[in-house]
Simulated scan of single mutants.
Amino acid sequence: MSTSTLDVPGALAAPPPPTTPPRRRTTGGSRLSFLRRWISPVALVGLWQLASVSGVLEERKLAAPSQIFATAVELIADGTLGPATLVSLQRVGFGFAIGAGVGLVLAVIAGLNRVGNDSVDPIMQMLRTLPHFGLIPLFIIWMGVGEAPKVALIAMGVAFPLYLNTLAGIGGIDTKMLDAARSMNLTWGQRLRHVVIPGALPQTLTGLRQSLGIAWLSLIVAETISASSGLGYTINLAREFQRTDIVVVGLAVYSILGLVTDAIVRNLERRALAWRS
């Protein structure tokens, strides 16, 4: 009878079979995946164009993609689209800055102090359940029909997602880290900088992306009410004349701006959280 290697005293165990290292995604594979994601949108636009050319889709209901593209070029050339876009960007910028500042400050107050939490959080939880679009009549009564109610509507939409996510991020910080910071006699500002901000940053960036999306939705609603400039005003004016091509151009610009701002935040997230990879 033959004796296996493992039965012989002092014999070395057989080496384990070589493991195959995980395959890395090649650049060509990533490029192919990127191209595949464009197939369905391009096919949809092609069907849309075909339906418009064949008369299945009436122009007064929805203009053809070719007509929309031509209208966009025309609006850029005659100086209509650029200034309207800048006005909308300005409104989002002001509203986002105010809402983000309020949301972050209140989240820090509520997250780092029990008295602050008991004072701030109940009010924020009540206010966030209100449909902020339903407050438009009150905003108009309080602030008139100028820029203030539009900026306030955007700020209110921005504040709550950022507040909730940042508060959750602060609540998820290990208490041992905070205790260690206190034992090292770090000041409140140093604890905020070295412990609280890094610990809450992932959740805060998630709230930032959500807030930006709501900011653009709030802008669309705000600019369709008592506006005399901006993309919403252009869309409303086109609606009265049944210019669906201009309406779609305005909506497309809203969408592109939203995607660009989201991409900026995602890039910031990758850089700020590179230590997690």
Rank of each mutant, 00 (worst) to 15 (best):
S2V: 13
T3A: 14
V8N: 12
G10A: 02
A14Y: 07
T19H: 10
T20I: 10
P21W: 11
P22C: 08
R23N: 14
R24H: 12
R25K: 15
R31W: 14
S33A: 14
S40Y: 14
P41I: 05
A43M: 06
L44E: 04
G46C: 13
G46A: 14
G46T: 13
L47I: 11
Q49F: 09
K61G: 15
A63V: 03
P65F: 01
I68F: 07
T71C: 11
A72C: 11
V73H: 10
E74P: 08
L75K: 06
I76E: 12
A77Q: 10
L81I: 04
L86G: 13
V87I: 12
V87T: 10
S88C: 02
L89D: 07
Q90D: 14
V92T: 01
G95N: 00
G95I: 05
F96H: 04
F96P: 00
I98P: 06
I98Y: 04
G101R: 03
G103M: 01
L106K: 04
A107W: 02
A107E: 04
N113K: 08
D121A: 14
M124P: 03
M126Y: 06
T129V: 11
L130N: 09
G134A: 14
F139M: 09
F139L: 11
M143V: 13
A148N: 01
P149L: 06
L153P: 02
M156L: 15
G157S: 08
G157V: 07
A159I: 03
N165F: 05
T166C: 04
T166Q: 04
A168Q: 09
G171A: 06
M177G: 07
A180Y: 02
A181Q: 01
R182C: 10
S183N: 14
S183H: 14
G189M: 15
L192V: 03
L192E: 06
H194D: 09
V195Q: 04
V196L: 00
I197W: 08
I197N: 03
P198V: 02
P202H: 00
T204I: 09
L205S: 00
G207E: 02
R209A: 08
Q210A: 13
G213K: 03
A215S: 07
S218M: 14
T224E: 15
T224W: 15
I225W: 04
A227H: 00
A227T: 02
S229H: 15
G230I: 00
Y233S: 09
I235P: 01
I235V: 10
N236I: 15
L237S: 13
E240T: 15
F241Y: 15
R243H: 09
T244E: 04
T244K: 06
D245R: 01
D245Y: 02
D245Q: 01
V248Q: 08
V249I: 01
G250L: 04
Y254A: 01
S255I: 11
L257N: 05
G258M: 00
G258Q: 03
V260T: 05
A263S: 13
I264A: 13
E269N: 00
R271H: 04
A274W: 01
W275D: 00
